[in-house]
Amino acid sequence: MIRWDKRIKLLFLLPAVIWVLALTIAPLFFSLYLSFTDVKREVVITGVEEIPILDKDGNPKTRSDGSIRTKKVKQKELQIKYDWVGFKKYKRVVNDQEYQDAAKFTFIYVIISVFVEIVLGLFLAFLFNRRIYGRGFMRSLMILPIFATPFAIGFMFFTILFEVSGPLAWMGIPFLSNHNWAPFSVMLVDIWQWTPFCFLVFLAALQGIPDDLIEAATLDTKSAYKIWTSVILPLLQPIIVLVILLRVAESAKLYDYIASLTKGGPGTATQSVSFLVFNKAFKMNDFGYASAGSFLMLIVVMIFVMLFFTRLRKTYE
């Protein structure tokens, strides 16, 4: 390593660090503060200035009764009051049946969809790692879902899961109208979009395994199953863990799909924490509830990330 002077290295690093600090940590603290307060916002009009409206020649425009038309510019003041209320909001959130249901749904959603994505992704990677025709082309088609706009995907699936005459209607499953099935429909969307991602990563990892390692193992046993469990999976393990971490963190944010697919319904069967919090904040103007609700969620996600912390540190050694 070159011996660089200290100021230079800080000059390189600090802008990004300050940027991110200022725009994530600071708002988070503010959010924390909000979750302990009641916010009252009120606009007070302090004065009205009437400016005559002029036409092209500079003469004031008039109404039919001869009075002059004016533009009313209002001076106003936004008064925001913060009242400290302690843990009241948290108590309300924790005891709220809707929040509990949303947390439960989000949890189950994350577990099942990530699990399916990993398994399916592994299977596909295995398949594509074989000698097959047109691999490049199919691979290209496979990965298209990853970058599609999630919010639009919700609508896309609405037409696909349409129960009366949609393309999957022959299955006779009440995809969106039954509170037991609807959660799976949302998971299906997640699985559709993100299995390709898992597949792609695992495929890259599989292709990175040196052939002689596999050949050596083939000498020992002819069982493909054995080779997978004793050689390939252990080698893939760090990558699988990383993918789990990324997927869990991403899918816990669930908002876009249900905003366009189910609206959290039927009833509250597919209401995620993000969706509930968003509605409380921006439909009901209940920012305190929203902050408290999202903080609880943040804490849970953070605990989860911490569990993976040592593994992550190794990855970025």
Binding site: E98, N178, H179, G265, P266, G267, A269
Partner: peptide, 18 residues
């Protein structure tokens, strides 16, 4: 809107059998 929101959710839950 708040009154209706919660009513709406409960009605939907009732209609879907939840």
């Amino acid at each position: 809107p708040e009154y209706w929101d919660i009513m709406d959710k409960n009605l939907s839950a009732a209609m879907s059998g939840q």
